[in-house]
């Protein structure tokens, strides 16, 4: 599927919430969307376009805002697609994808603890790689590698 074709099919569903589909490294496209339309985009991608497999969820810190991206795969098209959304505000948040693709569960936990993106209605949003009670988001640009942080590690289970 070409980015143009994908854009035409998504535009009817999402309207203004679709910010554009850019060509990207042989993928079906890089879909940029407003976070409010997340759920309807997810359902459209899975049920109508056949992107049944969610590979990856991640976040990027752009200092003034954060970006969340999803990588999906379609067995029918044999193609990936990348969904990307800019999240503004002090507490960047977006609807969870784990209701649509259960595989998003751990990826969103990781993005939450490392990049500080909150996923609304996530079934189990707790630390995965970092110790419980860890106060920092290491993948933010403000987290410098050269400054030791004060850290008190609590045991997870008593």
């Amino acid at each position: 599927m070409e980015p143009k074709e994908l854009e035409a099919r998504l535009a009817g569903r999402l309207g203004d919430s679709l910010l554009g589909v850019e060509p990207f490294q042989g993928l079906a496209g890089r879909v940029r969307f407003r976070p409010e339309a997340a759920m309807s985009l997810f359902l459209t991608m899975r049920d109508e376009l056949g992107f049944v497999h969610l590979s990856c969820v991640g976040g990027i810190d752009w200092v003034d805002h954060r970006e969340v991206f999803y990588i999906l795969w379609s067995d029918a098209l044999k193609q990936y697609v990348l969904l990307s959304s800019d999240l503004d505000g002090k507490v960047p948040h977006i609807e969870t994808a784990s209701a649509v693709w259960p595989s998003a569960n751990w990826h969103e936990r990781e993005a939450w603890e490392l990049v500080g993106i909150t996923f609304d209605h996530h079934p189990d949003l707790r630390h995965l790689l970092l110790p419980e009670g860890y106060q920092f988001q290491p993948l933010l640009r403000s987290f410098l590698l050269h400054e030791p942080e004060e850290l008190e590690v609590k045991t997870r289970h008593v």
Partner: peptide, 16 residues
């Protein structure tokens, strides 16, 4: 690189 994100296959295989 500004940001590098890796997707590990075992990560998903284990989460299931």
């Amino acid at each position: 690189p500004y940001r590098v994100k890796f997707r590990s296959p075992v990560f998903s295989n284990l989460s299931a």
